[in-house]
Nucleic acid binder design. Structure first.
Lengths: 344, 344
DNA sequence: TTGTATGCGTTATCAG
DNA sequence: CTGATAACGCATACAA
């Protein structure tokens, strides 16, 4: 059970390590017969190249770092899940990290990935200015970086996202067309996407001459998708209810919140969609099983993942100085899925 | 911006590489002043040790492989999530893989992890006999392996799980005590856990003298938690409904199904819990937001993750031959959380 | 307390 | 077509 490596193979076959290495790498300059002998021996003895030695020599790895805020958020989970599918035919391995929206944790993750000499990084940053200098440095000097979802970031590279303002505009508009006028907007932290989403909501109100009401923008400032913010959220709605200001429609600005609000409305004895129509952001695979089934804006998560990987691999393969490239923003199309929660 | 490594530091400070290496590793045999000079220079020039070179030399990595069936299953997701939390204070990095319950994909994942020379592996195998020989070989000769959740596996090591039969027994019993007698059991693939869970369900029926009915064990044979099996499942319940055999209670044997069945019952105009009481398996963080809120058996997922990591690190640190160790099974206690879906 | 020399497993350069 | 040798960055036995 001694270690089987190039040297041991060479010794066993009375060849030099160099020849064995070349045979294993299918070099054109090695005789067919020798190749076969080496490959047969290697297979028989279950030879596995040592990636550390290989990397030390070549300076290349087949690792791809993925940095996201939370694993436990339906959108990011679906993204990672599809990334795993997409990466299968390629010779890369994913190393996912979650940052909890925390710049310091993000920095640690990036440092680690750099130390691991990853071939590239796909990231949705903790916030708009999160680790800007570090990311620029990595992208310019170390390995390519691709941004997705949270693309309002100073790094100049390929960016993949959706038109957040357009999507919430359209969602709000649909509720207006169904005759709802007291429309609330539910959102999380004030990161770039949230700003854009609020803007779309406001524009829709404005274009339909519905006055904007500050108290209808409900900020649920959670740190973590699994955190329990029921009581706060419930309190907000209870207050609106007792002052006779209860909205009759809600646009959920994040995937997590849109699901939770259904449960909270239920405990307040409000029925959906009769009393309050609800439309969520991001189509979790559960939306269809909720009661009532939740209408959602469906982000093309899988396309985003596939595109991110494709662009990253393109950059990895390209030798060009990454500061000279003209990068494109890919704004993918979302679609609204109407289910029971907005049915008249 | 030349590469900064031990050699370059040594040259800059007029020291030998050996001295620098020892200073960086805080060796006792280096003068305090020298240490400080080296550390200061290293910090100033943002020195990062090359893990590949280090590993090539020491034969050790700080990588931990995590192999699970699906990322998109609430239980496994929560497990991984907690693993990420638990690993923070330690000097290890997680490399997660999903197998889709497929032994071949699992083998590829394990091969990769072995090639990466991971320090240890935490796995919930694709099935009871999945890669048994490979796992034994890894555990005995390469790095320690810990099993969780699906612990009916031939590998002799620490195993962390719950008493599946006891838990479904207790869930079934609770429904019986609420006066339900037509109790169905909803389950996925026929893997070990499912068998145990069905056994608990049957035992409860038996002990309360309720005849077991084959058609009340409903197998939803999905490949993937995100797969759409609505129509099949709906068809099953519709048939039971039209033949006047609709159960008045359902024990959900998997986390995914328990959530979906609520949505399906809603489309069949059955109200929960009046017509059908439902209790789910595994407390997804959404259970509380469903309408009605879903009663569930709560697995102590976080404790499982922390314990798995703790045991693994213990094995990594221990030098003893792992075949000589007497391993313990850790059967953690689950708890039933009663919510609206089982309220009388 | 520090320096010299060696090797981990691989690939690349040069020579034959 | 194949072999000898050096080098990647680091840690350590041995020397001083």
């Amino acid at each position: 059970m001694g270690k089987v490596n190039i040297k041991s193979i060479a010794a066993a076959l009375h060849l030099s390590p160099a020849t064995v290495s070349r045979a294993l790498n299918d070099s054109y300059e090695i005789k067919q017969e020798t190749k076969e002998r080496v490959l047969a021996y290697a297979a028989r003895h279950n030879y596995r190249p040592n990636p550390f030695a290989k990397h030390l020599k070549t300076g290349k790895t087949n690792l791809i770092g993925v940095v996201i805020p939370f694993l436990s958020s339906p959108f990011f989970l679906e993204f990672i899940d599809e990334l795993y599918n997409a990466v299968l035919p390629h010779h890369y391995t994913l190393i996912p990290f979650q940052t909890q929206n925390n710049e310091k944790i993000e920095k640690e993750a990036l440092d680690f990935l750099v130390r691991q000499h990853v071939a590239g990084i796909i990231i949705s940053p903790a916030h708009e200015k999160s680790n800007t200098e570090l990311l620029k440095h990595i992208h310019h000097h170390t390995c390519p970086v691709i941004l997705f979802d949270r693309i309002q970031h100073g790094l100049d590279t390929y960016k993949i996202g959706i038109h957040n303002s357009l999507e919430t505009y359209s969602a709000t508009e649909q509720l207006i067309k169904k005759g709802r006028t007291k429309i609330a907007f539910l959102c999380g932290k004030d990161i770039g996407n949230t700003k854009d989403r609020i803007r779309g909501y406001k524009n829709a109100l404005h274009n339909y001459s519905i006055p904007f009401r500050e108290e209808y923008v409900i900020h649920a400032d959670y740190q973590d998708p699994t955190q329990n913010i029921d009581s706060e959220l419930k309190e907000v709605f209870r207050k609106l209810q007792t002052t006779d200001n209860m909205p009759n429609a809600i646009v959920g600005g994040t995937d997590t919140l849109s699901v939770k609000v259904l449960g909270i409305l239920a405990t307040l004895d409000l029925s959906v969609p009769q009393d309050v129509a609800v439309i969520g952001f991001t189509n979790t695979n559960l939306a269809n099983y909720l009661n009532p089934a939740l209408s959602t804006i469906r982000q093309p998560t899988q396309e985003m993942a596939r595109l991110a990987l494709e662009l990253l691999i393109k950059l990895i393969d390209k030798q060009q100085d990454r500061r000279d490239i003209v990068y494109e923003n890919f704004m993918l199309q979302a679609t609204t899925i109407n289910r029971k929660s907005t049915e008249v």
